[in-house]
Amino acid sequence: MLFEILKEGLFWAALGKPSEVMPFLRGKLLGNGLGESSKRQLEWLLDELERFYERVACCGRVEERHVRAIRSFHRDIVSVIETDGA
């Protein structure tokens, strides 16, 4: 489900609304009882994701390379959450 949300954010970004999904993601992921170290890592990843969405917004369309990048973000986010045991 997380991947689908990240991918939807990608399409919002292409429509010129790059931060549309970020408040939801931040609320759900950071309010998940993570330890401080994991929370910092996740905050960094979410900041990077937001900057990525902003770059996609400048492009104005979704390309295959963007979907590959979203898969990478998904993998990294899941890794942080699983490592923390949350």
Results as ranks from 00 to 15, higher is better:
residue 49 L to G: 05
residue 12 W to H: 15
residue 43 E to N: 02
residue 64 E to K: 14
residue 69 A to M: 13
residue 3 F to Y: 13
residue 2 L to D: 06
residue 5 I to E: 14
residue 82 E to W: 04
residue 42 L to D: 03
residue 84 D to P: 02
residue 36 E to K: 10
residue 22 M to F: 07
residue 75 R to L: 00
residue 36 E to D: 12
residue 86 A to H: 12
residue 45 L to T: 10
residue 38 S to P: 01
residue 81 I to F: 07
residue 39 K to L: 11
residue 57 A to E: 07
residue 81 I to S: 00
residue 40 R to Y: 05
residue 56 V to C: 11
residue 73 F to N: 01
residue 56 V to Q: 04
residue 29 L to H: 03
residue 64 E to G: 12
residue 20 E to T: 09
residue 59 C to R: 15
residue 2 L to H: 02
residue 85 G to P: 02
residue 23 P to A: 01
residue 54 E to V: 14
residue 48 E to N: 15
residue 25 L to G: 07
residue 45 L to S: 11
residue 62 V to Y: 06
residue 62 V to S: 11
residue 15 L to E: 09
residue 29 L to P: 04
residue 8 E to P: 10
residue 71 R to G: 04
residue 32 N to Y: 10
residue 47 D to P: 01
residue 59 C to A: 11
residue 76 D to C: 06
residue 17 K to N: 11
residue 58 C to I: 12
residue 28 K to M: 14
residue 24 F to D: 06
residue 68 R to E: 14
residue 32 N to P: 01
residue 54 E to T: 13
residue 71 R to K: 14
residue 52 F to S: 05
residue 48 E to R: 15
residue 1 M to R: 05
residue 66 H to G: 03
residue 34 L to H: 05
residue 69 A to K: 08
residue 8 E to D: 15
residue 54 E to H: 12
residue 32 N to V: 00
residue 61 R to T: 15
residue 50 E to L: 04
residue 32 N to R: 11
residue 64 E to Y: 11
residue 53 Y to A: 00
residue 61 R to I: 15
residue 80 V to Q: 07
residue 79 S to Y: 12
residue 28 K to S: 14
residue 48 E to A: 15
residue 45 L to R: 15
residue 78 V to M: 10
residue 32 N to A: 07
residue 52 F to G: 04
residue 9 G to Q: 03
residue 35 G to Y: 00
residue 6 L to E: 08
residue 83 T to V: 11
residue 58 C to Y: 11
residue 60 G to D: 13
residue 57 A to N: 10
residue 16 G to Q: 03
residue 14 A to W: 01
residue 4 E to L: 13
residue 4 E to A: 12
residue 15 L to F: 00
residue 59 C to D: 14
residue 22 M to P: 09
residue 33 G to A: 00
residue 77 I to E: 03
residue 4 E to I: 09
residue 2 L to V: 08
residue 34 L to K: 01
residue 50 E to N: 13
residue 44 W to P: 03
residue 10 L to C: 11
residue 25 L to D: 04
residue 26 R to G: 07
residue 31 G to W: 01
residue 22 M to Y: 02
residue 17 K to V: 10
residue 31 G to Q: 05
residue 55 R to T: 14
residue 61 R to K: 15
residue 20 E to L: 11
residue 56 V to F: 08
residue 75 R to S: 08
residue 80 V to N: 07
residue 16 G to F: 01
residue 66 H to C: 06
residue 9 G to C: 07
residue 29 L to T: 04
residue 7 K to D: 13
residue 19 S to E: 12
residue 4 E to W: 07
residue 83 T to H: 13
residue 25 L to V: 04
residue 31 G to A: 00
residue 76 D to G: 01
residue 41 Q to I: 01
